[in-house]
């Protein structure tokens, strides 16, 4: 999540910088403007240069606000570009859809659905990876990602309900929404479990 966001931000910053340079260059209007061959510009030529500079500036500006393409986001997730995507797949979730909203503040989000139950060995393995990640530390984003995986792990251990859908907002501000679904009641999964699990989840989220 962080890697792709950073790529996008870098691209936007570069485009913005280029636009500013172009605009500044076109606005620089000394008394005697000559090109390298020593030809003096006419007023029309100066106006033309100015206009192309303004155009380039706004083209770059729109690039800043244009979100990445949905297929690009999906490709990055499928390729397991960051550890978080691979952990999410290891936790039993598969990419369901990618939503991209183009606006002044573009929004990119992805939904994952539960594709398989975890076995005890899967849980142990994932828990060990979480412990290793906790030891190596990491920033705020890694902490958020880790808590999402831990919530999924915790839910998979409880027989009373399941998290069947995970909705992740990737930008502008990272956010995770987990959709809980109670399992059909059976004799050995009392309803009490559901409320207990919900309170556990709340405990983890805040």
């Amino acid at each position: 999540m962080r890697g792709s966001d950073m790529d996008w931000t870098n691209k936007a910053a570069k485009a913005g910088f280029l636009a500013c340079v172009l605009l500044w260059h076109s606005l620089a209007w000394p008394n005697e403007v000559t090109d390298t061959t020593g030809v003096i510009y006419t007023v029309e030529e100066r106006a033309g240069r100015f206009w192309s500079g303004v155009k380039a500036f706004f083209t770059a500006l729109t690039q800043i606000f244009l979100p990445p393409s949905p297929t690009d986001v999906a490709r990055r997730i499928h390729a397991g570009e960051t550890l978080f995507w691979t952990l999410l797949v290891d936790a039993g979730y598969e990419l369901d859809d990618v939503q991209v909203t183009a606006s002044l503040i573009p929004k990119v989000s992805a939904s994952f659905r539960l594709a398989r139950e975890l076995s005890d060995a899967d849980r142990e393995w994932l828990q060990r990876r979480m412990d290793e990640l906790a030891r190596t530390g990491g920033g705020l984003m890694e902490g958020l990602q880790r808590s999402v995986i831990l919530m999924l792990l915790e839910a998979s251990e409880n027989g009373g309900y399941k998290i069947d859908r995970v909705h992740l907002v990737l930008s502008p501000l990272p956010e995770a929404q987990l959709s809980l679904k109670p399992l059909p009641p059976s004799q050995d999964t009392p309803q009490v479990d559901l409320s207990k699990s919900l309170s556990l989840l709340r405990y983890h989220r805040y």
Binding site: R128, L150, N158, L200, Y203
Partner: peptide, 14 residues
């Protein structure tokens, strides 16, 4: 043969 998971530890405390 493994560490108590976060969920198990939380359940213990509860």
């Amino acid at each position: 043969p493994r560490r108590l998971s976060h969920a198990e530890y939380n359940r213990c405390i509860e």
